[in-house]
Amino acid sequence: MTRTTLFRRLTLSSLGLLLLGAVQASEVNLYTTREAGLIKPLLDAYTSKTGIKVNTVFMKDGLPERVAAEGKQSPADLLMAVDVNALVELSEKNVTQAIKSPALEAAIPANLRDAGGHWFALSVRARTLYTAKNITLSSFTYEDLADPKYKGKICIRAGQHAYNTALIAHIIAKDGEAKAEQWLRGLKANLARKPGGGDRDVARDIMAGICDIGLGNSYYVGLMRSGAGGPEQQKWGDAINVVLPSFAKGGTHVNVSGAAVAKYAPNKDNAVKLLEFLVSDEAQALYAKANFEYPVKKGAALDPIIAKLGTLNIDSLQLGDIAKYRKAASLLVDKVGFDN
């Protein structure tokens, strides 16, 4: 082989590697448990703005297990989940990496992101109180749910559902397990029916007169009242009043959707860029419009239906600290026989 031929081959090989790097640099791989249709407008806007293609892999369950099984060969760059417990689990499974980003830290309040930079909230939903139309409450605390004056008047979905175990975990984090148990027993004594169904079923049962009040996430109000769930659900949404409760000493309980950069992300820079885009004013407005959620960034536009619910004052406890009690909350639900 002549020196000229060898030089040409080395040059072509180097060019091929450069081209491969260019291809890799123009994409980012997203593993998500959030339905693709809900985030497509955001991802399309990102690609239009940056030219970076987003390859989406949707999975309903098993995200941490899949990424862990793929190990260093995993193509995942960004991991998206719809619950703080799931975000914490990703970190606990050691499939995420710490990110330091001034843009993320400026946009996301400290209590809505991991202190070590392993996950970041991107949107927020409040655990609200639904009431019958003939009930007007200017304020309400979560502690009030255990007040005997509401005996036989409350509807709620299963205690073991993540929405409710997260709230119970929050109460444990604030007041300790003994007081949380006392509260949960009081809530159980006030139920109008066996816990079950979904949050929209709570609104339906209030309309039917089965109960007077119940808990439901804020974005379901938007889904019902907008007609997105159909005309029957719109009737349910219009049949209730909605109150943003708070803790007696604190603010409103929320859950979040969020994301983390995968531990072995092959396109780490693009993953961080996508994360930073998702907390921009443009993306936060799209989040609010796509699924009636509260933006995580202060000052971002709200959907008009959600804006009418009032000002959301999120409790100051760090979500990661609350999530530490999720197992204790689940055990407490079983201990008091809440779902029986």
Rank of each mutant, 00 (worst) to 15 (best):
G71L: 07
P75C: 12
E89A: 13
E276G: 08
A36M: 10
K133L: 12
G227V: 09
G214I: 00
G71Q: 02
R326G: 10
Y31R: 13
V336D: 00
Y31N: 09
Y142T: 03
K335A: 15
L63H: 08
D175V: 05
V82Q: 14
N111I: 02
H161C: 11
A189F: 02
T33L: 08
K40W: 08
G198E: 11
K153W: 00
K174G: 02
Y46H: 12
N267H: 08
I172Q: 01
I314E: 02
Y219F: 05
Q182Y: 07
Y294I: 09
L104K: 04
T141Y: 04
M59Y: 10
V57H: 14
K60E: 14
L30W: 04
G337C: 04
D303S: 04
Q97R: 11
M224I: 05
A178P: 06
K72T: 14
T165I: 12
Y264N: 15
K49V: 05
S123C: 06
L145D: 00
S138T: 12
A283I: 03
A22W: 14
K133A: 07
P231C: 13
L223C: 05
E92P: 01
C211M: 05
L42H: 04
T96K: 03
I99K: 04
E143C: 04
G116N: 15
F140L: 00
E65R: 03
A76N: 09
L42F: 01
V243K: 03
V333A: 12
A158F: 06
S138G: 15
A25F: 10
G237D: 00
V95T: 08
K324E: 12
P41S: 04
P245Y: 13
V261F: 10
L15V: 14
L20T: 11
I305L: 15
I172R: 01
A98C: 10
P41C: 12
L184T: 01
L19D: 01
L122N: 00
R193Y: 04
A173C: 07
D269W: 01
A162H: 10
L90S: 13
V221E: 02
Y31F: 14
A285H: 07
L274D: 13
Y264C: 06
K324D: 08
R125A: 01
V84P: 06
K308E: 02
I240P: 10
S48R: 12
N29P: 07
R34E: 13
S139R: 11
N134G: 11
Y150F: 12
A169G: 13
A76R: 02
V242W: 09
K100L: 07
L278G: 02
E27Q: 15
F58C: 09
A192N: 09
D201G: 00
H118Y: 10
W183T: 09
Y219N: 03
L20C: 13
N267M: 12
A22K: 07
L43C: 11
G214T: 00
F58H: 14
K151P: 00
L6F: 07
W236A: 00
K235G: 07
I172E: 03
K100H: 12
F338W: 00
A36T: 14
A307S: 13
L309V: 05
G71Y: 04
P75R: 14
K335W: 04
K263F: 07
Y294F: 15
V23E: 05
Q182G: 07
G227A: 11
E70V: 05
P304L: 01
G229F: 14
R34Y: 11
Y46L: 08
I172Y: 03
N267S: 15
A328W: 05
N29K: 12
D321M: 04
L215C: 02
